[in-house]
Design a protein around this nucleic acid. Structure first.
Lengths: 333, 333
DNA sequence: ATGAAAGCGCTAACAT
DNA sequence: ATGTTAGCGCTTTCAT
């Protein structure tokens, strides 16, 4: 191999020389609606294509003051819900000419190096998906004028950040009503993480609705929004002296695990043996192996809202309503 | 709430003024091993922290000639295998101070605008995960000196690109042998996409091994590496006048779908009714609902190799061996 | 419509 | 060890 180091890509200057025009003309040729004649633009375009020239967006952003880069911090990419949302978002942003610089890993706290790097890349906006970091980062960003949006979570500690969430309370209430209608009476709630507004809202919606129906507080165990946690929580609940006859899990990811434990370790058939409900309506919920009742979070709508907040710089709180999707996991017959 | 307008982040110049030093001193204060006294560095650091200064990596990359940004094109994030690999890669790269600018969507061809944008951001290297685009893009990149690496796929049409793949042939051969040992005789292969080297290698490994054992060509259907395709392919195979007694699916993602169709639409119990094998050993393969026999692709090893190629600029072809993981889906007893 | 020149925020070579 | 200067590749006045 002759050259480890790459020859540098051609610059606007190179193109200008080859086309016999000024470097500024090259810039104008690549700017929509700039005042330039067809003739010179043609010369520039040809020279550019011969040289394989492409404007350097990094240099441009230095002047323009924005990079076109959106930072996304994703705590738990294992959860299919976030994955699906991420995919949709990525495409929506690409259509708007923005691109995603991504940071994964639950370990990413605001003080961590990787997340600090994010700011150094001068991202135009920041989206926080399923992550525990919040207020310090959000404050830093706000100070530097970059807008922060929380996805599927709202942070009371970050007043200047926007958020997009599903209808957690309403959904949880519908779920409570549905379970009661189906005849379940010994109910349990499987929580996500303690510091998650999402889990708390779903829990209060659920318990409040039960209370309104004259029932006491449901049993409870925490699954921390993770599969391993959900497995442990399910075993805990089903090993109780008087186990529940239905469990509402704070999301589908945990609910799938709960279904498997119930079926394979406790021999409980879905629906008849034990009612299980999730939240999100991820793709797997509809797989024949599961048939999980869930409250749908409409990804398209949520992503639309996110995109609006991200690009608009607004710090609003959008709540996107969904629907209860009833499947076999809560049918007693 | 007073200023909608984002005040620009502080520059090295601002810090210099406040610290009473030159702007170059600020640069040195943030450069490991630069020749600067403790005293001035301290002054700079204090001024910087007061102002909330952070070096602008975009500006730096303009000079250094590299951005620290790695472009990743991911075709099908629905496949858990790529997702898991992506997550591991993201963390590995972050540890090395690099970050990922991501492009998703199967529609991303080399001529597409989004992927062209990638080049404009002057990514240091490009990783192609599960996508059909290849030669034109790879050539462009090579011309501009940015190295291209294919993940889980090798492109004969892009000679200058590196690649990291699993042991497709060897794995497929082991799978063939395993199925024969278990007593299956009417075998079928479910292909991925026609233009995928991965699918082709797994197919030839499989068929060659069967031939070596004196069997004819297996039945065949194409699932295109997608769930919907796999469902259709499974129905097709199982509706044959003389259906197979075992199917080797080119990846787990399709194999899970095949298991469900076999069980829920054809009433075939895993293993006894119909043998099913996948490839990748994704997490779900081990879930009790599935128990899918698979050939593992060791993500950690593959990601190590990818990282090496990406950062080293080498265009080697790494083949990472895995293991046959036998589960219930191929146990006849 | 076009070119010359200034400058975005930074690093590196060159002084001192 | 520190300041000065010259760019990196681009957009944007400002002339013409």
């Amino acid at each position: 191999m002759m050259s480890l180091r790459a020859r540098k890509p051609p610059s606007a200057h190179d193109v200008a020389r080859r086309a016999g025009v000024s470097q500024a003309a090259v810039s104008r040729a690549f700017t929509e609606g700039a005042s330039i004649s067809q003739a010179t633009r043609a010369k520039v375009v040809r020279a550019a294509s011969v040289l394989g020239y492409r404007p350097n967006l990094l240099a441009r952003s230095l002047i323009k003051g924005h990079s076109g880069i959106i930072g996304v911090v994703m705590g738990d990419p294992r959860n299919p819900f976030y994955l699906a949302a991420f995919e949709a978002l990525s495409e929506r942003l690409a259509a708007a000419g923005r691109h995603i610089l991504i940071f994964t890993g639950e370990g990413n706290a605001a003080g961590d190096v990787p997340v600090q790097d994010l700011l150094k890349y001068r991202v135009d906006a920041l989206l926080l998906m399923s992550t525990s970091l919040s207020s310090p980062l959000a404050r830093q960003c706000h100070a530097e004028g970059i807008s922060v949006v929380f996805f599927n979570r709202r942070a009371s500690s970050a007043p200047d950040a926007g958020s997009v969430t599903g209808a957690n309370r309403a959904g949880a209430q519908m779920i409570a009503t549905h379970l009661l209608t189906q005849g379940y009476r010994r109910l349990a709630f499987m929580a996500g993480s303690a510091d998650s507004s999402t889990s708390r809202e779903r829990e209060t919606g659920f318990t409040d609705q039960l209370a309104a129906a004259g029932l006491g507080r449901p049993m409870r165990a925490a699954g921390h929004f993770q599969r391993a946690g959900a497995i442990a929580a399910t075993r805990e609940l089903l090993s109780l002296p008087a186990p529940p006859d239905a469990i509402f899990c704070a999301n589908d990811h945990m609910a799938l695990a709960a279904m498997e434990i119930a079926r394979f370790e406790f021999g409980l058939a879905a629906g008849r043996g034990l009612g299980i409900v999730g939240f999100d309506d991820i793709e797997q919920a509809s797989w024949p192996s599961f048939g999980l009742t869930s409250y749908s979070q409409p990804i398209a709508g949520m992503v639309d809202a996110v995109t609006g907040l991200l690009l608009g710089g607004t710090n609003a709180h959008a709540v996107i309503p969904g629907n209860l999707i009833v499947r076999g996991s809560t049918r007693r017959v």
